[in-house]
Nucleic acid binder design. Structure first.
Lengths: 249, 249
DNA sequence: CGATGTGAAACGTTTCACAGCG
DNA sequence: CGCTGTGAAACGTTTCACATCG
């Protein structure tokens, strides 16, 4: 397609190069659904089925799968087991990714105990905090160590992914330590924009921002309903915008 | 621009209509940074400054702000206080949004206690679970009620945003209850794709997917370094691809 | 002059429509 | 015939470059 970059390149390299970011995110979703389908005993899925179950347009799904050098069978669909295997390979789930979690507060605790990680190929290999009450204890069998140990411990245990769940003020400092330790992919839960070198990939999960986006849509919907009905009505925004009887606080 | 929809529309309606999704997400980020700047006593910011602090291209920032009917001063920048006010109005933060949280497990506990919500205009108005050990207790002063109460309680308290932090198997059922209760914006932490009517807005926070995206990038980077360096170096991937001495599990 | 606001080009993503194969 | 795989069109987003104005 684009053109063969080099003649003798492994198929591993060939497939991985040019997958759009947006597709990668969906591949993970397909993979999860395929896991469920496999458990239910399904042997094949059509793009329509899988697309329906994952809330995606079938054409988009087929294009996504075509990026990984697809293994579909025309007239039939995709073989579930084979597709699972290809997706896992593409997403780098064939070699385990050791994860370090920094910040064992409310959220950190929850993340440390979250089944979705260890269960699905992301063993939490290290926990860090600065609180003396936390350093030294074990969570889910993992020792909480002091943040200053990050460079040593991460290097030792081959940590490839860091998760930051600290308060915002210290997140950048923690990030710098992780980068120093050679961690090049970071999942940031702290409400700050991290500054990192180009070679480091940061993804952000920002709960406050998510809520604000939804708040925007609440406002949009209120205006929409206020605008549809009233053309005749004068000022129909009445109870909609400010009609919250009595909130809990 | 697009065209004035109706002559005498309030400026509130005029500005809100056509803001791109991608911009809305960033507006929330600008708002947070502006809050910090205000606390530091800044009176104005230039697009370059604010863009730098939020990791965004300055032109993009200016375009984003132009959507809300911008209040910048040429040659100077933006007045911080005024911009904060405009952003809050645009994001629907002037009237509080009552939030309901369903699923008080690991993650739910953390969310219920998270300061970023109540502090910033999102009072948690209701908590729900099915576990008899949880129903009846208070968390952060809020009573945990049974999931079956969702329709009544949400309607009573004017809940506009629902958060689902349940196991995947029950998330769709919970979602249906929320929708039935009139909640039209949902933040979903459960690892499933929710099926909702068109008028309901769902945003998904999917930790496992985030990690898998990062895992993909780890794999990509390994291939990149394996491909760039070694032209001279032989096999430079040394400890990178399979150098994980001993993982924790 | 310096920073905003914005057409227009570049880029990425989604969707359509259908050729091609099992 | 049915479903995949994929050019090409449509759409949304980002970036550039510069006119505009305080």
């Amino acid at each position: 397609m684009t053109k063969p970059p080099q003649a003798g390149s492994e198929d591993a390299t060939a497939g991985l190069r040019a997958i759009p970011e947006a597709s990668v995110a969906r591949l993970a979703v397909y993979l999860r659904k395929l896991g469920e389908l496999a458990e239910e005993g399904a042997e094949t899925v059509s793009s329509d089925e899988l697309a329906g179950a994952t809330g995606v347009n079938p054409a988009k799904l087929r294009k996504d799968l075509s990026y990984i050098g697809s293994y579909g069978i025309r007239g039939v669909g995709y073989e579930v087991a084979a597709l699972v295997h290809q997706l896992e390979r593409t997403l780098g789930l064939n070699h385990r990714q050791a994860v370090a979690l920094v910040g064992i507060g409310n959220l950190g605790h929850a993340l440390a105990g979250y089944g979705g990680f260890g269960g699905r190929g992301f063993p939490v290999a290290a926990l860090f905090d600065v609180d003396p009450d936390l350093v030294g204890i074990h969570i889910n069998g993992i020792l909480v160590e002091h943040v200053r140990e990050i460079p040593r411990v991460c290097a030792d245990r081959g940590v490839t992914i860091g998760m930051i769940a600290t308060p915002g003020q210290v997140a950048q400092g923690v990030c710098d330590l992780l980068v120093e330790a050679g961690v090049r992919c970071i999942l940031n839960f702290a409400p700050v924009v991290l500054q990192v070198p180009d070679e480091v990939e940061v993804r952000k999960v920002d709960l406050a921002v998510e809520l604000q986006i939804l708040a925007f849509h609440v406002a949009r919907k209120n205006l929409a309903t206020a605008a549809t009905a009233p053309a005749v009505n004068g000022h129909a925004a009445r109870g909609v915008v400010n009609g919250s009887g009595g909130l809990a606080e």
